[in-house]
Design a protein around this nucleic acid. Sequence first.
DNA 1: TTGTATGCGTTATCAG
DNA 2: CTGATAACGCATACAA
Lengths: 312, 312
Amino acid sequence: MVNGTAPVAEKTRHRVLKAIEELDYTPNVLARGLITKRSGGIGVIVNDLTSPFFGSILDGIEAEVEAQGMHMIVASGHADAKRESKAIHFLRQRLPDAMIIQVDGTSDPELLELAAHKIPTIVFGRHITELGERCIYLDNEQGGFLATQHLIDCGHSRIGHIAGPLTIADSRARLQGYRRALEGAGTPYNRGWVIEADYLEAGGYRATRHLLERTCDLSAIFCSNDQMAAGALQALREAGIRVPEDVSIIGYDDIPLARYLYPSLTTIRQPLFEMGRAVAEIAFKALAGKRAEVRHKFEPELIERESVQCPE
Amino acid sequence: MVNGTAPVAEKTRHRVLKAIEELDYTPNVLARGLITKRSGGIGVIVNDLTSPFFGSILDGIEAEVEAQGMHMIVASGHADAKRESKAIHFLRQRLPDAMIIQVDGTSDPELLELAAHKIPTIVFGRHITELGERCIYLDNEQGGFLATQHLIDCGHSRIGHIAGPLTIADSRARLQGYRRALEGAGTPYNRGWVIEADYLEAGGYRATRHLLERTCDLSAIFCSNDQMAAGALQALREAGIRVPEDVSIIGYDDIPLARYLYPSLTTIRQPLFEMGRAVAEIAFKALAGKRAEVRHKFEPELIERESVQCPE
DNA sequence: TTGTATGCGTTATCAG
DNA sequence: CTGATAACGCATACAA
């Protein structure tokens, strides 16, 4: 009756409502969930809660979830298979109405199996054909290509790349896009121009210093995210190398701070917030047994600022 | 028996374990929670999941929680009384083993009432005397003082302040520290030197422009967080004002990106990660009925980098 | 040592 | 339209 299941007479209705008020009674979610197999929350798992990258995504998801009067419970998986698995099971046990999961250590088949259960499961940041509309992702290969091609269009040819951890699919895709652009321009892939780092500022800083030791003829560097680009900027500054006069830098993500770096960072924008909203919308529609009318594949976009210019 | 409650014969033990394996049986947390009033999770609520500030805190909490083999479920309250209350109740309903809450819209008495229930509740970022050891906080007034005093020690006297939203206690405390330092130096408080913003980069940028329109004789600005300082740096740069030669800037928080700004940001460090760890430790000890041997009041610390120098 | 009954707080079902 | 009762999946206490 509290949930409008049964039709009630006005009189009894009032009596009950009054009693509820007096005892400030709160329905026990656990007991209720035992029957309905529902908890009224959306489970969300992402690699890490700290970075501005996932921050924007969570923001988008939260906006939509809150608009629906629901809540999200989030956990982090740290791109590690074991931790992801624990986090996923922890969340599943709480019977969320739907799950949104962004992981890197978990394989496609495992994800497929998860999605096969009753709880609607949406995958963020991966394209799994069998999942159809239940995933949302961005073309990172194209993003890497876009970034590198922009440098090429500006007249650069000796272009380095600071990659993210190559255990992460996004990192590999961006690297792949970098190679495609380079090869399209007739520049063979040069191993010495590429270095792997960790998506953190300090990592980008160290990687840049290593790159500088290895070779000093680079005229541009494509960093696989903005945080590493911030580190690169700093390393170049300390080395007395001017950006963008001597070396151009391009980042990836367009985090809020990107435009406040010096020089302001040219970068590849991913519509993280919008993607967060969209994935939540898919979840809610799936919950209602409907298909969501949203985009599933998003396109990266070049944001031109001041850290790139023609060589010389 | 699964939880080691009863002594069992080896034989049956094996039989059960095998069955568990075969049916890949997972205990139903809800049914179990119905009895034990426990869920194996730590509920965490913070203002917002996006900012690097709360990111560091969550990182610290997570480190400790994970070390204990538990999980955390986090929700955000956005410094808004209504949203905070909803988030808190949402989490409480799930019967977390303990709760860590950082809020701004909720009053001390309300918090006290929450803490009076069975679920151990620890308050982050506020000093509530009645809660005793159940809270952990930092002296923001002292931090504001430290920042301003550093500028004064460098020889500045015309010092502006970009405050955070004054609805937030931390913002008010930092402003208070600013006033104390100024008055200690014999400089009367000047309303025109202070402006309220929103803790975001863009807000700091706009605030700085307003400040510049109002008066052009400021030789230093104390920003209530690093993100606003980043905006200030950009606004000054665009106005052709050199930092630190013409105007000194000091921030607050020491977010990871602070040292990668240009010029690298002098700021007030708060041991956010350590505080996160500590608050989680208090929670676990409270769970075990013990007191935690940790610090409850943390001290802000000046981090000198390049954005401050003597005037002239 | 093992099996069995009872209760946790709901929702759902089925007579009344 | 109402009231009583079973069932959800587990822990606990007690009897076998």
